[in-house]
Design a protein around this nucleic acid. Structure first.
Lengths: 141, 141
DNA sequence: GTTGTTGCAAATACTTTGCAACTAT
DNA sequence: ATAGTTGCAAAGTATTTGCAACAAC
């Protein structure tokens, strides 16, 4: 699986005329293999901690590339820093964010997805990506 | 209507034990009366250009207050800057953002709204606010 | 070999903070 | 009079950029 996604990255970069570098791979793998939502600095520190050399500049530049080619999803959890997650090898999902506990609950609803497509088509567009976040609070008993 | 919304702001501030100041009013009115989606610096510059004294610090602090009490909606259009719009005196709507032209199309769909509520309730939460943005591209003929 | 990519350090952009002066209540 | 709010300038974060060295092709 890891191998498959390395291949995936490689193909996309080649198709776009971009080079497949160790740094791009490292950034991609950090996000791919993380169970949590990382921000740019988390990624930078994690790569460094594994003994590999990378710069913050490259992390940011790589994130831009991955975002552009839709390998990543950018998340704004409302705490001021952008976090990222892989869009590959997982079901698509959106997020509920609990404003009291900070918990993040992933959800998926097919009716919702279809409805979005419909709304977009009616206006003469096609859907490229979307951001859908529900900020919630536990129901008090 | 302007008067009504000034009153509205006043009441919220009083209810929360906060003071009704000229600066808070100015920031609120900028956002209320603007047809566009402004960022913090737009607001700062616009107030200054009207001859009123305000600081960036106060603009940021006021935005925090207005966000906290749900008078504003924060928008991340993917261009790196946070923009704001009033949530008062208008139908709720979400946004479609054209990634080719930068156009912003507002939309509202009641089935979508109800579906969101349902999803949240099923997980034991109540919906406080949400962010829903569809990044789209014109359909080519 | 050629050209895109990287690391670095500096620059830029955005936002927050401490504190004394000010002002709404 | 009191306590919250403001403006300022400085500090803090986040992100971007120019450029020479480097590495992928």
């Amino acid at each position: 699986m890891a191998t498959k996604n390395i291949q995936f990255l490689k193909e996309i970069l080649q198709k776009e005329g971009l080079r497949f570098t160790r740094q791009r791979l490292a950034v991609w793998q950090e996000i791919e293999t993380s169970k949590k939502h990382l921000d740019a600095d988390d990624i930078f520190i994690s790569i460094r901690s594994k003994g590999m050399k990378v710069s913050r500049a490259t992390v940011y530049r790589t994130i831009d590339v991955l975002l552009k080619y839709n390998l990543l999803r950018k998340l704004d959890m409302g705490d001021g820093r952008n976090r990222f997650e892989s869009k590959i090898d997982e079901e698509h999902h959106d997020h509920m964010i609990c404003i009291e506990t900070g918990d993040i609950i992933e959800f998926y609803n097919s009716r919702l997805e279809k409805l979005q497509e419909k709304i977009v088509h009616e206006k003469g567009y096609e859907l490229v990506r979307h951001v859908h976040q529900l900020f919630v609070r536990p129901i008090k008993k």
